[in-house]
Design a protein around this nucleic acid. Structure first.
Lengths: 203, 203
DNA sequence: ACGCAATATGAATACTGATTCATGTTTCAA
DNA sequence: TTGAAACATGAATCAGTATTCATATTGCGT
């Protein structure tokens, strides 16, 4: 117990420039370390070592290991939303948007493999964050599909199911053909997949 | 150290009837407990409690927590293989097989949610087992697609990419519309999805 | 230039849980 | 029936690491 009230910032952002930088360092280090070793194998000591700071400093910025993890999932949410939105801006219609969105997502996985892995691990580490991430994404996706159906740009069908099915394609192709591949050929994967979802399997 | 050489069965199956039963009890308990709490939250004590046996007994049958986990992933492999193979037997052509396979998979997820979850968690707990599971499945799947293409039952396209894309659909729909749903409507999900992959999105 | 809030430090604490072990009990082939 | 192999037990060991804390140092408004 201290004589003067101790204020460790367990809420809100740091007040000083240095504080903001440290917090960013820790987030970046956590992305690297947790993305590499996984949540349970990554220790706080690993993270602070990567961030070149002292162990105790971690707890000035985050309440727990779970909290910094959740922060990373939220960051992933902001990034993917922004990225897909931007990629889709130029698209003249929904089909083009599908192609552009898939390409953007796979490129993102190639750029930030650790974040991709972290979001997937969230299913087990922080199920609520995981669900929020995907349901909010799916909601927006389904809305777009409904709009496109109304505009006659795509065939009719249950937009929610389709949204999840299409997200499933992206997730799995990202893992198999980006994460597992030394030299991913994103263009080829996008073209093949686009052909399949456009034309279907019926000859 | 013991005076007479101690032989704990760290390899192969148990030699007695009782041993085989115990091992099966432990595997079942592990499926329940790990499927429910996740790998890191599930303790050996939890598993032996569920199996109604003593703590130390666990190590007579399995070298480690990782080993019993891997065993469950392998079991899932055997089961899904058998199940899909059986479901697809009756199918007159590849399209019908796709529908039947998706239906069988989603039904399996509904029946054994714990196993589904365990396989997904293997990505982080035992990446090699995870990869083996999906690559061997994908190999067989792609072979079927190539055969169907040659027979003119489906359109042309890269069979490997398609296999992974279709697996991705199943995985994700299983999670969203079976695991997350109180009363899953598997038929509806299968019909909608089948329509999408058959006809495609182009009007 | 002062002083309080904010930030930094890393040794010490506290707890969890995997694995081992010494010692029984049971099975089963000969 | 018997004895050696198989199996059962759970308290004790042992290692790892999340989190706390008492004590500095730094930032910054005034």
């Amino acid at each position: 117990m201290n004589q003067y009230s101790y204020c460790v910032m367990t809420q809100g952002l740091p007040k000083t420039k240095r504080g903001l930088e440290r917090r960013a360092q820790l987030l970046h280090a956590a992305e690297v370390v947790i993305g590499d070793k996984g949540f349970s194998m990554a220790s706080i000591a690993d993270i602070t070592r990567e961030a070149e700071t002292a162990l105790g400093t971690f707890y000035i910025y985050f309440r727990s290991k779970e909290e910094i993890f959740r922060e990373l999932v939220l960051e992933m949410g902001r990034l993917t939303r922004a990225m897909v939105a931007e990629a889709v801006t130029e698209a003249p219609d929904r089909l083009a948007a599908e192609r552009a969105g898939l390409h953007a997502f796979l490129s993102f996985v190639a750029d930030r493999p650790a974040l991709y892995r972290i979001v997937e691990e969230a299913r087990f580490v922080d199920p609520e964050a995981y669900r929020n991430y995907f349901t909010s994404f799916a909601r927006a996706y389904a809305a777009q599909l409904r709009r496109a159906q109304a505009a006659g740009e795509i065939t009719e069908g249950d937009a929610e199911i389709r949204a999840w099915a299409l997200m499933g394609i992206s997730k799995t192709l990202g893992e198999r053909f980006v994460l597992w591949e030394d030299k991913p050929d994103i263009d080829r994967v996008v073209e093949e997949t686009f052909r399949m979802i456009s034309e279907g399997l019926v000859p």
